[in-house]
Simulated assay, not measured.
Amino acid sequence: MNEQPVLLITGASSGIGKACFDYLFSKGYKVYGTSRKPGDQNPYLLKMDVNNKKSIDAAIRHLINKEGRIDVLINNAGISVVGAAELTSEENARLQMETNFWGAVQVTHAVLPHMRKKQTGKIINVSSLAGLFAIPFQGFYTASKHALEGYSEALRMELKAMNIHVSLIEPGDFKTEISQNRILSNEREDKDYKKGLAAAMEIIVKGERKGDKAIKVAKLCQKIIQSKRPKLRYRIGKPLDLSAAVLKKILPQRLFEWLIMGHYQLNKAKKI
């Protein structure tokens, strides 16, 4: 590619998205990020709500008018809804799926016509290890990442002949603002879930606070961008996180489930 690549990163105002935006910008890429509330201080941070098609179309149109192309799309925008699946409101469950899955789909579909016109491009979807196995009390987050995995796998095959590459990044726990910004969805306290949720939340928050630095994901994005033939899946995180993905493949489901429940201290959780 003779011209400087044009990158678009959704959810670039904090966390992994911001780390990718700052790092790739420092490496000389022409990087644009998106945020629902970007402010006026950075012309490279565009206003976009991934749950609003008009907002998406306006941001993509602005970027194409300015740069003429989008070479790399990094779908990073996402939220976390935590709570017992049964007690999660339909509103919060739909918001989880709309943001993490349909948001990525809508942005991708807005960008793809421009990539197909050039017959080249890269799409990097930020998934999670939760896209490979379920996490208790994050059922709808897990579902959104499982959906993103399946969509990306199919899309990769459909676009290969057009020289458009699709990859997934599957992070474990990383130190971001997700702990402060998550939605706790148990509107009704229930004795059957209360102790289990409290135990799981303690482990979830502890894992995030001790997680890896988001710059590692940014460096992985650069590696994918520079690769002529990027892989479908890239897992990243601490050894304990990554081992779970390996064990999921080789252990009987009952044993793997027991290990996951033990990690989140659910084997000892009784209703109170």
Results as ranks from 00 to 15, higher is better:
Ile56Met: 07
Glu91Cys: 08
Asp40Gly: 14
Tyr151Trp: 14
Val126Met: 14
Asn52Ala: 05
Met157Gly: 09
His146Phe: 15
Val81Thr: 15
Gly68Pro: 02
Asp173Pro: 06
Leu129His: 01
Asn75Lys: 00
Tyr151Asn: 06
Ala93Gln: 00
Ile56His: 00
Ser80Lys: 04
Ala110Ile: 01
Lys53Leu: 13
Lys53Pro: 00
Asn51Ser: 06
Ser144Arg: 02
Asp40Thr: 14
Met157Thr: 08
Asn163Pro: 07
Val72Glu: 01
Asn76Gly: 01
Gly39Tyr: 08
Leu148Glu: 04
Lys160Asn: 10
Lys47Met: 09
Ile135Ser: 06
Leu112Phe: 11
Ile169Met: 08
Gly139Ile: 01
Thr88Ile: 12
Leu95Ile: 11
Asp173Val: 03
Ala147Asp: 03
Gly131Met: 04
Ile70Cys: 10
Lys145Met: 14
Ile123Met: 02
Ala93Arg: 10
Glu98Trp: 01
Phe137Gly: 02
Ser127Val: 10
Glu170Trp: 01
Ile70Pro: 03
Gly121Asp: 09
Arg69Gln: 15
Ala143Ile: 10
Asn51Gly: 10
Leu45Gly: 06
Val105Glu: 05
Pro171Ile: 07
Asp173Cys: 14
Ile135Thr: 11
Ala58Lys: 09
Thr99Lys: 03
Phe101Cys: 02
Glu67Leu: 14
Ala77Trp: 03
Val105Ile: 08
Asn65Cys: 11
Leu87Lys: 09
Ala77Phe: 00
Tyr151Asp: 02
Leu112Lys: 13
Ile123Leu: 06
Thr99Gln: 07
Ala85Lys: 06
Ala147Gly: 12
Ala134Pro: 12
Ile60His: 09
Pro171Val: 03
Lys47Val: 10
Arg94Gln: 13
Asp49Ser: 10
Ile124Asp: 05
Leu45Arg: 04
Gly83Cys: 10
Ile60Asn: 06
Lys145Trp: 08
Trp102Glu: 02
Ile164Glu: 00
Phe140Asp: 00
Glu98Met: 12
Asp57Gln: 11
Arg116Pro: 04
Asp57Asn: 13
Asn125Met: 08
Ser144His: 08
Asn42Lys: 13
Ile74Val: 14
Val107His: 06
Ile135Glu: 03
Leu45Met: 15
Ala143Gln: 03
Gly68Cys: 07
Pro43Leu: 08
